[in-house]
């Protein structure tokens, strides 16, 4: 088990390094002159040169990279090119908002996806199964922000059940916080739910056909207990998909935050993209991949717990 954990950790670190290096050079290749975006079109060449010198653009690219990379290794992503405030601090302010929404969306996905997948899988070709299949085909393809717009119009503007915009910190009001993140979380989750449900459904059908399920029934176990056995054996594939969906939820959150005016990472990313504020974009990229690595790591531990054969490998 320990060797297994170390192996996964090393894989995560290699991924982080690759993404950090890749994104740095991608960003610099995409933006030929960052000062244009930072100062706007009215700036004089002298002003631009001054800014370039201030943020170190006049140094060789490799020196700039090493400078950034050295800081990033110890968790310091430098300062914004626009307001010269700490990147870490700005991300730290926005992160709780995005994490609230994405975590809530992941929870919804896990719970609803499991329930739907299990119900459909235990009765393949039933009415419920066919409805789920039909709906999932379309829901999976529709982008989260499209679903957000529908939900906003319906639940926020017409029914007025939830606020259409804004974020309430949990410290201020726990109920208000939940209400403010419910619609964004559901917008993100709907597409992911159907993917998890579909995966789990297929696995449940496959496990249900296995010999040991019949033997468990022959021992007199109740239907609920047998279902738990089936669920445990069917869950690895669905969990893996859930981890993949987490990445998609992070991506989707960026556009969804714009619709709900949530002051999260998405808003920061979008603003920094408009300004060409590369240090912030790099910081966000690395931080989000750290979360992906953490989620994958938790997934691996969960898979090891569910399937004892994984542990000995």
């Amino acid at each position: 088990m320990i060797g297994f954990i170390v192996k996964r950790l090393v894989a995560g670190i290699v991924l982080l390094l690759a993404v950090s290096i890749g994104t740095f050079f991608l960003a610099r290749a995409a933006i030929s002159d960052p000062t244009a975006g930072l100062l706007g079109t009215t700036a004089t060449p002298a002003q631009r040169a001054a800014l370039a010198a201030k943020i170190g653009l006049d140094r060789p690219l490799m020196v700039q990279f090493w400078d950034w990379f050295r800081g990033a290794l110890v968790g310091d992503f430098g300062v914004s090119w626009r307001n010269f405030q700490s990147v870490n601090k700005q991300i730290a302010i926005k992160l709780p908002v995005t994490l609230s929404v994405v975590t809530f969306a992941t929870l919804i996905t896990a719970v609803v996806g499991t329930a739907f997948g299990l119900i459909a899988g235990l009765r393949p070709n039933s009415l419920f199964d066919r409805i789920i299949k039909t709906v999932s085909v379309v829901l999976f393809a529709l982008p989260g922000f499209w679903i957000s717009l529908v939900l906003v119009v319906w639940f926020a503007i017409q029914l007025k059940w939830f606020p259409a915009v804004g974020y309430v910190p949990p410290a201020q009001s726990l109920g208000g916080w939940l209400r403010s993140i419910t619609l964004p979380a559901f917008s993100l989750a709907l597409g992911a739910i159907v993917v998890v449900a579909e995966q789990l459904r297929n696995e449940v059908i496959a496990v249900n056909k296995q010999d040991f399920v019949r033997t468990l029934r022959s021992r007199g176990l109740s239907r609920g207990r047998v279902t738990l056995h089936i669920l445990r054996n069917a869950s690895p594939a669905a969990l893996t998909v859930l981890a993949v969906m987490f990445v998609g939820l992070l991506s989707g959150a960026i556009v969804v935050e714009a619709i709900f005016s949530l002051p999260g990472i998405g808003q920061l990313t979008n603003a920094s993209s408009q300004n060409g504020d590369i240090p912030i974009l790099l910081g966000i990229t690395v931080v989000s991949v750290i979360f992906v690595v953490i989620v994958n790591f938790l997934l691996d531990i969960a898979l090891g717990w569910i399937n004892p054969k994984v542990r000995v490998r």
Partner: peptide
């Protein structure tokens, strides 16, 4: 590895320049 990277963020990095 590509699947582990939130694509939207990288897209906004690319969009920052172009």
């Amino acid at each position: 590895a590509l699947q582990a990277v939130p694509g939207m963020i990288i897209l906004l990095v690319v969009a920052a320049g172009t």
